[in-house]
Simulated scan of single mutants.
Amino acid sequence: MPAYLLLLAALLSRVLPHSGLYGFTAVGGSLLYFGARRSWREMLLPVAALAATDYYLTTHVYSYSFAVSDYLVTWGWYAAAIVLGRILLAQKTTTLRAVAAAILGPTSFFLVSNYAVWLVAHNPGGMYAANFGGLIACFAAGLPFYERDLISTAIVVALAFGLPIAIRNFQHGKELPARSLK
């Protein structure tokens, strides 16, 4: 059930106006969590739900025409993020694995999506030059979004995987080990 609630939070974080939340979105963290905690047969649901959200945002919020081909990379990444969560966090969830997932998820999206944008937009008259400088300019333009995605994913992963452990420790009366000041 928590994976579905987190997916709902991801969907809402995309459709509700969130400019005051510094571009926060729970998408990456929720996909990692879904992959770690749900079965393989359930993996299509988050991809389909997020794809429907992409359609809604494109046609109703931004008033653009919708072309499936424009979203294949993004939808492929949704599935890949679920697989990444399954690989890194399903069998054994450690702090190191959670940190790795929180970094690899947004980084892979940044690299894949910006490269795809450059491929489409480096034609004559496009936004970016058809050379290495144009590719670097495209990646540079995506850096603010990458930063927000890293922060959002790190927060969601830390809460989704860390909060249950903290609650369990609190309920069992376990105290966190005291740190030495030496």
Rank of each mutant, 00 (worst) to 15 (best):
E147N: 07
S13C: 09
A36L: 06
F145R: 02
V73D: 13
Y33G: 03
I155A: 05
F34W: 15
V120A: 14
L176Y: 11
A101Q: 02
F145P: 10
I82L: 13
A160Y: 08
F161P: 03
P164F: 04
R37S: 07
G142F: 01
G105V: 07
P164R: 03
Q171S: 02
T93Q: 12
I82W: 13
L12A: 14
T53L: 14
Q91R: 11
T93D: 07
D54Q: 07
P164M: 01
L111Y: 14
W75G: 15
A140R: 04
A130V: 02
I151V: 10
Y62I: 08
F170N: 02
I82C: 09
A160G: 06
A116T: 01
S63Q: 15
G76L: 08
G133R: 02
P2D: 04
V15W: 13
Y115W: 15
G173W: 06
Y128L: 01
T58F: 15
S19H: 09
Q91V: 08
L96I: 14
A90G: 00
A140S: 02
A3W: 06
P46R: 09
R38D: 13
L96R: 10
D54E: 07
A67M: 09
V156Y: 00
T59P: 11
P106H: 11
S152D: 01
A102Y: 01
T58R: 11
G125H: 11
D149T: 05
T93P: 08
L89A: 12
K182R: 04
P177S: 12
V68T: 06
L88S: 10
F170R: 09
V156W: 01
S113E: 06
D54L: 10
V47K: 14
I155E: 02
N123Y: 04
S152F: 00
S65M: 13
M1K: 13
